[in-house]
Amino acid sequence: MDGQRRVRTEVILPRLARHNPEEYDGWAFRDLTAALAPHGIAPVKSDGNK
């Protein structure tokens, strides 16, 4: 997350794809949500956006 506490989904998904394109290229919000759920991490709203 480049040292940031909170990162919007539309920012983190391209970062993940740049870091490991074979794994993350083409991921959508639902893919990230599903990957984080087993770790107890859920999306939250910020400024009215999820």
Rank of each mutant, 00 (worst) to 15 (best):
D25N: 08
R5E: 10
G40C: 03
L16D: 08
P21K: 11
R6D: 08
E10C: 08
V44Y: 07
L13P: 05
D31L: 03
L16E: 12
T9M: 13
P38A: 02
G26C: 01
N49P: 02
L13S: 07
T33E: 15
E22M: 12
G3Y: 04
S46W: 11
Y24S: 06
N49G: 03
L36M: 07
F29M: 03
R8E: 14
V44W: 11
I41M: 09
A34K: 08
A35Q: 06
A35N: 01
R5I: 14
T33R: 12
R6I: 14
L36Q: 02
K50E: 10
G48C: 07
D31K: 08
A28H: 07
G3K: 00
G40N: 00
A37M: 07
G3E: 04
D31R: 03
E10R: 15
E23L: 14
K45G: 10
Q4F: 04
I41K: 07
L32E: 03
R5G: 00
A17I: 13
P14K: 01
P14F: 02
A17Q: 09
R8V: 10
R5T: 13
E23I: 11
K50I: 15
L13R: 07
F29I: 01
K45V: 10
Y24W: 08
E23S: 13
A17T: 12
R8Y: 08
D25L: 08
H39G: 00
K50M: 14
G40R: 01
R30N: 10
E22T: 14
A28E: 08
H39S: 07
N49K: 15
A17V: 09
R18D: 13
E23A: 15
I12D: 05
V44S: 14
H19D: 14
I12R: 04
P38S: 00
L36E: 03
D47S: 12
F29T: 03
D25S: 10
P43G: 06
R5A: 15
R6Q: 10
A37T: 06
P38M: 05
N49W: 09
Q4H: 11
T9Q: 13
V7N: 03
A34P: 01
E10M: 15
P43I: 03
Q4A: 13
D25P: 00
A42N: 06
P43M: 12
M1Q: 04
T9F: 11
K50Y: 13
G26P: 00
E10Y: 13
N20T: 12
A28L: 08
P21W: 09
E23N: 09
V44G: 12
S46H: 10
T33F: 07
E22I: 08
K50W: 12
G26I: 04
D47Q: 12
S46L: 14
P38V: 00
N49S: 06
Q4P: 00
P14A: 01
Y24D: 04
R5W: 08
L36D: 02
N20V: 05
L36W: 01
H39I: 00
A42R: 11
L36S: 02
D47F: 12
G40M: 05
V11T: 14
R30G: 00
I12L: 11
A28C: 07
R6T: 15
D25E: 11
A28K: 11
Y24F: 09
R18H: 10
M1S: 07
R30W: 06
D47H: 12
A35L: 05
E23Y: 03
P21Q: 12
